[in-house]
Amino acid sequence: MAFPEILDARSLRQGIDGFVNQLVIDYADSLERLSQPLLTFLVSVEQLLRNSPWYLVIAALAVIAWFGSRRWTLVVGVTLLMLFIGVIGQWDRGMQTLALMIVALIMCLIVGIPVGVLMSLSERFRKVALPILDVMQTMPSFVYLIPVVMLFGLGKVPALIATIVYAVPPLIRLTDLGIRLVDHSVMEAATAFGATRRQKLLGVQLPLALPNIMAGINQTTMMALSMVVVASMIGARGLGQEVLAGINRLEVGRGLLAGLAIVALAILFDRVTQAYGKRLQYPKQGDK
Rank of each mutant, 00 (worst) to 15 (best):
M150I: 10
M150G: 01
L151K: 09
L151E: 04
F152E: 08
G153E: 03
L154G: 02
L154P: 02
G155C: 11
G155V: 05
G155R: 01
G155N: 04
K156C: 01
K156P: 00
P158G: 00
P158Y: 11
I161M: 04
I161H: 00
T163W: 09
T163Y: 08
T163D: 05
T163N: 07
I164M: 07
V165I: 15
V165Y: 06
V165F: 14
V168N: 04
P170W: 06
L171S: 03
I172A: 04
R173Q: 08
R173Y: 08
L174H: 05
T175V: 09
D176M: 13
G178S: 06
G178A: 07
I179V: 12
I179G: 04
R180G: 01
R180W: 00
R180C: 11
L181D: 11
L181P: 00
L181H: 12
D183C: 08
H184I: 13
S185L: 12
E188S: 06
T191G: 15
T191K: 15
A192R: 06
F193L: 15
G194D: 05
A195Q: 11
R197D: 13
R197S: 14
R197M: 07
R197E: 15
R197T: 10
L202S: 15
G203S: 08
G203M: 11
V204L: 12
Q205I: 00
Q205F: 05
Q205M: 15
L206R: 03
P207V: 08
P207R: 09
A209H: 02
A209R: 05
A209S: 09
L210E: 03
I213P: 01
I213W: 03
A215W: 00
I217N: 12
N218F: 01
Q219F: 12
Q219C: 05
T220S: 14
T221I: 12
M222W: 03
M222D: 03
A224G: 13
A224T: 00
A224L: 07
A224I: 04
L225C: 09
S226I: 00
M227H: 03
V228L: 04
V228I: 14
A231D: 03
A231M: 05
A231S: 13
S232Y: 04
S232K: 02
M233I: 10
M233C: 05
M233L: 15
I234C: 10
G235V: 04
G235T: 03
G235F: 06
A236V: 09
A236F: 05
R237L: 14
R237G: 15
G240K: 01
Q241T: 12
Q241S: 14
V243E: 09
V243R: 08
V243C: 06
L244T: 13
L244F: 14
A245F: 13
G246R: 10
I247D: 06
N248K: 14
N248Y: 13
R249S: 15
R249C: 06
E251W: 11
E251L: 11
V252I: 14
R254L: 15
G255D: 06
G255T: 03
A258I: 03
G259T: 05
